[in-house]
């Protein structure tokens, strides 16, 4: 187990290193000068140079990279050019929106996708199955931002029961804050729920053909009991893999969805930071997101061991 942990930690570290290098290089290669953006097009050359020096932009690239990485180890992510605030403070602020949003979305997609998939597999070829598969086809074909717009049309413009966008803020109370995250979370969750339902269905169908499910039936378990006690847990192994992958799609989805709903989250932060050439924010957020993706995959690997005793190892009999 500790070897396993160590190997995963090394992988985590390497991925973060790779991600930091990649984003640094991309920002290095692509055009766009933060100083010009900050001072405007008509700025004086000497004031531009002064600002560059102040920001450390006049130093060679490798030095800037090391300074940046060193900052991470000291918990100092630098200062945002655009907001003139510590990046860490901005990120923590934005996480108060994005984290609950992501959690709501993943809970929702799991709560919809898993049961639908199991149900469709259990009632294979029935009307239920056909309906679930129809939902899947439509769910993966709908752009989530359009689904978001449709929901705004229906719930905000037509029924007027939901805010059309914006974030009430946690200071306004828990319910108003949650309420402004409901439609975004549903929009993020829908395509993921569809994918999850499809994967769960085919995985359960596969497992249901296994001999041990037949054994369970021969012991007198009802179809439902054999499905629930013997098929579902085995079927979850590939499903968990997909859920891990979905996390990164979810992060990507927040960029668009937070824009649709004008939510001050990480996704919108990075979108604006790119537009404003707030390079330091872009770099930090990308590395943070990459880290989150790797961390989630780490958790997924751990949950395999929970689901499958063969991966836990242990002594052999006799």
């Amino acid at each position: 187990m500790s070897v396993f942990l160590a190997r995963r930690l090394v992988a985590l570290f390497l991925t973060l290193l790779g991600a930091s290098l990649a984003v640094f290089l991309i920002l290095e290669v692509l055009p766009g000068d933060p100083a010009t953006v900050m001072l405007g097009i008509g700025a004086q050359e000497d004031s531009l140079a002064a600002l560059r020096a102040q920001l450390g932009l006049d130093r060679p690239a490798w030095q800037r990279y090391l300074v940046w990485i060193w900052g991470w180890f000291q918990g100092d992510l630098g200062n945002s050019y655009a907001y003139d605030e510590p990046v860490i403070k901005i990120i923590l602020e934005r996480l108060r929106v994005s984290l609950p949003l992501a959690l709501m979305a993943i809970t929702l997609s799991t709560a919809i996708g898993l049961p639908l998939g199991v149900l469709a597999a259990a009632r294979r070829n029935s009307l239920t199955d056909v309906s679930v598969m129809g939902f899947v086809q439509v769910g993966v074909a709908i752009p989530n931002f359009w689904f978001a717009i449709l929901m705004i049309l229906f719930f905000s413009v037509f029924l007027k029961v939901m805010p059309a966008g914006g974030f009430a803020g946690w200071d306004a109370g828990v319910w108003p804050a949650i309420k402004s995250l409901i439609l975004p979370a549903v929009a993020l969750a829908l395509p993921q729920a569809a994918i999850l339902a499809r994967v769960t269905r085919s995985s359960v169908l596969e497992v249901m053909r296994e001999d041990y499910v037949r054994t369970a039936r021969a012991k007198g378990l009802t179809f439902a009991a054999a499905l629930w006690r013997h098929a579902v847990r085995n079927a979850l192994i590939p499903v968990v893999t997909i859920m891990g992958l979905q996390f990164s799609f979810l992060l990507a989805g927040t960029i668009i969805i937070e824009n649709v709903f004008y939510l001050p989250g990480l996704g919108r932060l990075i979108f604006q930071a790119i537009a404003q050439r707030d390079v330091i924010v872009v770099k930090d957020v990308v590395v943070l997101l990459a880290g989150a993706v790797v961390l989630v995959n780490f958790i997924v690997d751990m949950s395999y061991a929970l689901l499958d005793p063969r991966l836990r190892g242990g002594g052999h009999g006799q």
């Binding site: 296994e210 001999d211 041990y212 037949r214 054994t215 085995n234 499958d308």
Partner: peptide, 11 residues
Amino acid sequence: FQEPMTALNPV
């Protein structure tokens, strides 16, 4: 059953 390797639930 015939196949003891697969007739038991692995988990």
